[in-house]
Design a binder for these strands. Structure first.
Length: 428
RNA sequence: GGAGACGUGGCCGAGAGGUCGAAGGCACUCCCCUGCUAAGGGAGCAUUCGGGCACAAACCUGAAUCGAGGGUUCGAAUCCCUCCGUCUCCGCCA
């Protein structure tokens, strides 16, 4: 959610910045709502003040045992207008909030202006894609030939867009997550979190999945209780740690790493990446979350993105970093870097991490604050990034490290997690 | 799943229709006193939003908030309803 004060005082500037991401802010509608709000709120509060002081008089009169019927008649006369105003104000404020809630975050100045994903800008490349003296296979062919990746059985058990791993490949999947957690906790200073995979609507609203993206979520309805949602990313439970909190001065930065499964309905994505593990209803991810002071968030995004890149480098996976243009950024983000890993079978780079600075956009919605050195509260800034998506990392390792006979070389960094094994081959 | 108790500021805790945003204590901040330490005295100390107000701060003022949301009432921390959460006992369970 954007700062309403900023909208009131600098509407034109906000409007221009939003236009760079292709969002047209209806300033006429906003101004109209704002004018109505101001008159209605002032009037309502005047009436409430009047009622409060009269009611207080009644209390004082009755306390002294005197007659209060005249004052009671006076306050009764107010009631009809006050009730009408309170109802109208409530409706208007809800409408106002709903309107503001649909406005996306404003991009930072360093974000390239663009019209589509075509306009994203490559920042750097690391590593050199290997050349192969045989025809490369994709991870589906490799995994099925090894007898360790089974989409048919997953479909029988659950349905389309699920996968089943067996044996060494299942272990490699686990090893990847363990390795990432170890690097981030031991070398990058993150605190490991284990968090709920089901969360309430308030948490989903806090990080911005609700109300706009309900269709992408798996929802658990319960007859005698409020619904729960399966998390689409650990960002949701972890960032909500600070919801409705006022953190002590000096408590920041908070750096959390959390490995969870992620569940996405992705209703709009059918037909895209239907083959393989690239786009699934369930996948594992190691997520990095930082809660920082406002003036620190720009550098924190650089740091966090480096932490994710370090994993790719330790796994010897060629990648590039892309800064998303204004049109391609997520709703809540002020700036986003995507990391894309090289996939030889697709002969292209594919997203494996997305690192974003949300500034105060999520914090405002969550009321996540910190006490500054003047003992005043101010909103924190929130950031997160995948460090990395586990399933896609498995895909990248399989495809980049494949050998002519269909076996897969295990990167050095993962061998301690694989009882020292160097390759994955057909089980004997 | 069954039965019961409870939810008040950073923390503890009083308040049980009226002058209550809320006694008292702890913690914290400032001041005074004091060789050091400890103790003592005084003052301050919730959040969000609106208006004064033209950017910000300060200040003044109003509203809302006692787990959340509704209701009753001129007036609700207090009474009623729903939900959320905590605790105790029983059952079940990794």
């Amino acid at each position: 959610m954007l700062d309403i004060q900023l909208l009131r005082t600098n509407l034109d500037t906000v409007c221009e910045r939003l236009a760079t991401r292709g969002y047209v802010l209806d300033t006429v509608a906003f101004q109209k709502l704002e004018t109505q709000r101001k008159t209605l709120q002032t009037r309502t509060q005047d009436l409430q003040a009047n009622r409060n002081s009269l009611s207080k008089q009644i209390g004082m009169l009755k306390g002294k045992g005197e007659d209060a019927t005249a004052v009671m008649a006076e306050v009764s006369a107010l009631k009809a207008e006050l009730d009408a105003n309170e109802i109208a104000l409530g409706d208007l404020l809800r409408e106002f909030d709903a309107f503001v809630a649909t406005i996306p975050n404003t991009p930072q100045d360093s974000v390239p202006v663009g019209k589509s994903a075509e306009d994203n800008v490559e920042i750097k490349r690391w590593g050199k894609p290997a050349s192969y003296d045989f025809t490369v296979k994709d991870h589906v062919d490799l995994g099925e030939a090894l007898g360790q990746l089974d989409f048919a059985t997953a479909a029988k058990i659950a349905g389309a867009r699920f996968s089943l791993l067996k044996g060494p490949l299942a272990r490699l999947h686990r090893a990847i997550a363990q390795f990432m957690l170890d690097v981030h906790t031991e070398e990058h200073g993150y605190t490991e979190i284990y968090a709920p995979y089901l969360v309430n609507a308030a948490s989903m609203t806090g990080t911005g999945q609700l109300p706009k993206f309900e269709a992408d979520l798996f929802k658990i309805l319960r007859p005698d209780a409020e619904p729960l949602y399966l998390i689409p990313t650990a960002e949701v439970p972890v960032t909500n740690i600070v919801r409705d909190e006022i953190l002590a001065a000096g408590a920041l930065p908070l750096k959390f790493v959390c490995h969870t499964p992620c569940f996405r309905s992705e209703a709009g994505s059918y037909g895209k990446d239907t083959r393989g593990m690239i786009r699934q209803h369930q996948f594992d991810k190691v997520e990095l979350v930082q809660i920082v002071a406002a003036e620190k968030s720009v550098e924190a995004l650089e740091e966090l993105t480096r932490h994710a890149e370090t994993i790719l480098e330790k796994l010897e996976l060629p990648y590039r970093r892309v800064v998303l243009c204004t049109a391609d950024m997520g709703f809540s983000s002020a700036k986003t870097y995507d990391l894309e890993v090289w996939l030889p079978a697709q002969n292209t780079y594919r997203e494996i991490s997305s690192c974003s600075n949300f500034e105060a956009f999520q914090a405002r919605r969550m009321q996540a604050r910190v006490r500054n050195d003047k003992n005043k509260t101010e909103l924190v800034h929130t950031l997160n990034g995948s460090g990395l998506a586990v399933g896609r990392t498995l895909v990248a390792i399989m495809e980049n490290n494949q050998r002519a006979d269909g076996s897969i070389r295990i990167p050095d960094a993962l061998r301690p997690y694989m009882r020292g094994a160097e390759i994955i081959t057909l089980p004997r």
